[in-house]
Design a protein around this nucleic acid. Structure first.
Lengths: 202, 202
DNA sequence: GTAAATTCATACTCCCCGGTATGTCCCGCG
DNA sequence: CGCGGGACATACCGGGGAGTATGAATTTAC
């Protein structure tokens, strides 16, 4: 018969439930009771896998949010044999608007949400979130530099500057979308960002 | 002699203290005790002026955050006899980077902070925050339209789209700045935004 | 000048929620 | 086979923060 104890699966369930609840309500407003009720796992099991709520939050950033960022925003920038980062960025944006669960963007960006809420309160969160932001900017910047070498991006453009603005536009789009509870600002913003990207052509 | 009871001044003190604490720690993490300790006002006085913590938060948005937005981001767009909105926007950005208390931006944008934290949790917050966002976009959009009429802005540009992107870039700049605890992303982002604005010239 | 309403102070209540203590069950290992 | 440690369950604790009850001081109204 199937095993009764599956510790890593249990840990995984907790992480995913926590990721969902935190995405919806924020870290502070996310009650352990809510998370546990969502999984069927009990508090004892949860405190066996994580020493406290903070550690659970850290794990959510380190594992879940990091994966989200990688899968939806970073990996698409570096598909094999692609030397046109501007097209890749536009494709990534398009992919995010159409490829995901509809209205998931109304909840905001998992990274930006946590950054806003937790960075000023807790150093551990701040450090982890900042690491993800830096990775995002660096990967974007490098992609743009490669584009400059292949002649697809204006050689005079400051790639760090452009990377920061692109990240900011995406974060800001999420932010407005969340408050508006409508995708309209998101679409407007991505259209504007596309226009900006055109301006980076040689 | 001076009066002992000054209700509107008391109310004002509470609002300003609440605004500061909420700006630093967020609404949920802001304890009434902290706010009151900062003012010397007691809990009884506070609950006389505001029915509960939510109402206090609403008042902070309606009065303090609204004023902040008006003073630092909206009014500078509409100085008398100015027909060049792109220059006005660049000036507003510059004004925000130099004219305020240093490192105030490390705390994030008061509006964006509340938007991120409270919009998904409470409808009252969401509605108020969204109203401010809409006002911001509209005022920007109208300024750009005026610029089109005076020939200072490319007539083919979509002003709503541009307004949304500008707001997004500013919000995103704040967000990254807050996590980085460094003004570098803010400066990069504003430089990139300026480059985008150049692209809106006829 | 006095009653009524407003403004503020103090002490207390209540409850939610993170955290703990303790016990049981299961699995691996000799 | 049994024993020791890992995996999970249940019940309880304690603190902190929002909210309240009550009363005193002050201003206003008539």
């Amino acid at each position: 018969m199937s095993r009764a104890y599956k510790p890593d699966e249990t840990r995984r369930q907790i992480l995913e439930a926590a990721y969902g609840v935190i995405h919806r309500h924020g870290f502070q407003a996310a009650g352990l009771t809510d998370i546990l009720a969502l999984t069927g796992v009990t508090k004892g099991a949860m405190y066996h896998h994580f020493p406290n709520k903070m550690a659970l939050g850290y794990a959510v950033v380190d594992e879940m949010v990091k994966d989200y960022l990688e899968d939806w925003w970073l990996a698409p920038l570096e598909v094999e044999g692609d030397d046109d980062p501007l097209a890749a960025i536009a494709r990534t944006i398009q992919n995010n608007m159409t490829g995901r669960v509809p209205d998931i963007h109304l909840l905001g960006c998992p990274l930006n949400n946590l950054a806003q809420e937790m960075s000023p309160i807790d150093g551990g969160f701040r450090q982890r979130v900042e690491e993800l932001y830096r990775a995002w900017r660096r990967r974007l910047s490098r992609a743009l530099t490669r584009g400059q070498h292949s002649g697809k991006v204006n050689a005079t453009a400051d790639t760090d500057e452009a990377a920061t603005l692109i990240v900011a536009a995406i974060q800001g789009a999420f932010s407005q979308t969340k408050s508006a509870q409508s995708m309209a600002p998101f679409h407007d913003c991505m259209a504007g960002l596309n226009r900006y990207l055109m301006g980076l052509r040689p």
